[in-house]
Design a protein around this nucleic acid. Structure first.
Lengths: 126, 126
DNA sequence: CTGTATCCCTCAAGATACTG
DNA sequence: CAGTATCTTGAGGGATACAG
């Protein structure tokens, strides 16, 4: 029963599953886009808004908060008027992007196959 | 503006974003668990039910259908009584698990850091 | 400028009952 | 055995107005 239990829904009973923990951040609509945008360097709130294009203030705020909470992003407030807040990736954030790039590359390479599979599935009509 | 636009919400306007396409499958609650279970070899419906433990029939059925549609999983029906249906990974499904393992490994290695970051975030109280 | 508060809506997912 | 149909709930996410 040992198996490669890396994806177990639960490490037994204790902690929330490590993979789920990370996957929840990946799965949400915006975290990856934000991480990607920040890989280019330090950014301010409105800068991210513009760069992501179609994200709402609320979601950007929430996403950044979660990423900060999980240690992927660092938030720096400058006590000026008007207020200035900068976001950048922590080392943890950067290191996360490494395996992530692998996945992105896979998606890029195989997207066509997935699309074909879907088409075939549908024309087979079941 | 060229950038590494790998994570663009949309390839411009055309197809659904390749990454999003894959991520949606990763993001859902069960796809990864099912893929993982099938890596061990061909399985039947109830076998998967037992192995995953806490998945409902409905979600297993839906998840398998989506994975089949995307070409990750193959479904084979044997015209017997009682009915027998077997599921296994396609080459595409197998190849997908390669980058996925990278991500899982990262999660495993860094989960402690994420937890610490959360604790620190909370004790900092804001 | 940098957010938070509020309202609403959609859709993933659980429970249960029924079917071939 | 291997599913589908139906109902319900709850979290995620959009829009907008307000606040420091």
């Amino acid at each position: 029963m040992a198996k490669t239990n890396l994806l177990a829904a639960d490490g037994g009973f204790e902690q929330p599953c490590p993979i789920r923990d990370v996957l929840d951040r990946i799965g949400d609509q915006w975290s990856l886009l934000v991480l990607d945008a920040l890989e280019g360097g330090t950014k301010r709130f409105n800068e991210l808004m513009r760069e992501l294009g179609d994200i709402s203030k609320q979601m950007l705020s929430l996403t950044l908060k979660r990423l900060e909470e999980d240690g992927f992003v660092r938030r720096t407030v400058y006590p000026e008027v008007p207020p200035r807040v900068e976001y950048d990736l922590t080392p943890l954030g950067h290191s996360f992007l490494v395996p992530m790039r692998g996945l992105v590359a896979w998606a890029d390479e195989h997207h066509r196959l997935v699309c074909e599979a879907r088409t075939h599935y549908r024309t087979a009509a079941k």
